[in-house]
Design a protein around this nucleic acid. Structure first.
Lengths: 274, 274
DNA sequence: GTTCCGCATGAATCGATAG
DNA sequence: ACTATCGATTCATGCGGAA
């Protein structure tokens, strides 16, 4: 059976109303951050961010299945030398809407944005907030388990030389990654810290969302022919990964050029498959 | 000049009142987590955590120098399948007290506590919240610089994987020593994600606080003969590291047996030095 | 075919400058 | 004074061309 991929052009707070309630198994999205991406999106002021997002999360709560999961990728920016509080305020407000704040994964971005400031280091992590409707939800932990040997090998080969060197300098720097700890195990469940680099080679768009990120959550929270939704589709990474993994998908995008770009790519993919 | 180490036995909300205002350069502490250490501290109910902590943070704000920094190691526990919100509520309330929420470091615990649950992976990170009194504060970034990537790539790419592994298992031996010779050549600033293993060998204290953690922040935020405070001293890791690094230190502990243990260890250290 | 080097490019942030 | 824009800073990554 062929899986579907539905695309919608428009504001997601409106487009989401057209979806049936309790119809989506997984929402994975990375909304525009406050005052970021001003050139492509309008840019939302940090002080207005919560009130901007709440109507959307209200609709997401409606369309999600009771056993479904919502993964929200977000990070607060620095305003006047301080971390702004709109993200943690958003968590509190979403709980009032009825969401359960089940978990917070950390996305450790190894290649964070460069820069130097007198009172701050480079920001190399983002939040992956997990919300659910019920305490019981679908979770397929085995799908993201990796045989230990392979995992260790791939991790070792993926580790940059910098990581290795920094591990070795643990006496001076205090950082250590004890890879040798894992050598005697067969299998391992992952933890709630994900190590993935951003993709900075994609010139088509500004989003740096690596495919492995939605892929991991799609594996973990859905089965084949389940429904995956991204209300801020952007360049369509999540939707395309979902289709490749034989999940039905829905993408909503307000920018026409992004929408057209994804629509074209998806069509090309279907043709290729036939 | 000899550095001092002052210890106080008692409730820190009271003992802190005896300290002069604007007298401490760095506060590093890991307060008892909510309900986590019932047997040693009695445990604070998650719903009462914020109101329990606020009088203490009020005093900490008073004793900290205007250029000083407060590092709070904390993580919310899971209650009824959800992450509890006392940590993020605490951030909002401390801001009302006048604290600036400058940054949130991630402590990535490589060897996190084992376990398996149907709807949750192992928790392998904790928050290291940085608070300040002013936008300008003392920060010595050069003290925590780490070796740089390109240098490692060009120098180490010829080594076999086994060589690298073997050398990693030795702490500070082998060519780790050579690397330290090059530290002045090419160094990079760290990021706000810290990779440190917990210490499993410390049976005396219920909290696993590795020495490298306070050491890193003491390097970053203080110079020799500055004052370091830990209002929840526990087994005294922070205080002892501070003394070893020639910083003056103040430790407060409510449990008499912990207090005695640390007092004895510190005395032994002083005797050894003389 | 490999490996190696040079290069562009980011969900950044601060401080100075301009309206 | 308060906000908006701009230049300077910085490093992991993956690509293309070269040895």
């Amino acid at each position: 059976m062929e899986v579907e991929a539905k695309l919608a052009l428009g504001d997601c707070s409106e487009e989401l109303r057209k979806l049936d309630e309790n119809s989506v198994d997984l929402i994975v999205t990375s909304p525009p951050y406050a005052d970021q991406r001003k050139n492509t999106y309008g840019g939302i002021h940090p002080d207005k961010y919560v009130e901007w997002f709440l109507p959307i999360s209200e609709e997401l709560l409606r369309v999600l299945k009771p056993t479904g999961t919502f993964i929200l990728n977000i990070k607060e920016r620095v305003v006047s030398g301080e971390r702004h509080t709109y993200v943690i305020e958003l968590i509190l407000e979403m709980k009032k809407q009825g969401w359960l704040w089940t978990e917070e994964f950390i996305w450790h971005k190894k290649n964070s944005y460069p820069g130097k400031w007198p009172n701050r280091f480079r920001d190399s992590w983002e939040r992956l907030l997990q919300f659910n409707k019920n305490r019981k939800f679908k979770m397929l932990q085995e799908a993201v388990m990796v045989p230990m040997g392979d995992w260790a090998n791939s991790r070792l080969s993926n580790l940059s030389e910098t990581d290795k060197l920094r591990d070795e300098s643990k006496v001076g720097s205090g950082f250590g990654k004890n890879i040798s700890n894992w050598l005697n195990r067969d299998k391992a469940y992952p933890t709630n810290v994900l190590h993935m680099a951003t993709e900075c080679n994609n010139k088509d768009h500004s989003a740096a969302f690596p495919e492995t990120l939605p892929e991991w959550f799609i594996k973990l929270f859905t089965e084949e022919e389940d429904w995956v939704l991204d209300p801020f589709m952007g360049s369509g990474t999540t939707i395309q990964v979902a289709q490749r993994m034989r999940r039905n998908s829905i993408g909503i995008e307000i920018q026409e050029d992004y929408y057209n770009m994804v629509a074209e790519k998806m069509r090309a993919k279907e043709l290729f498959l036939l």
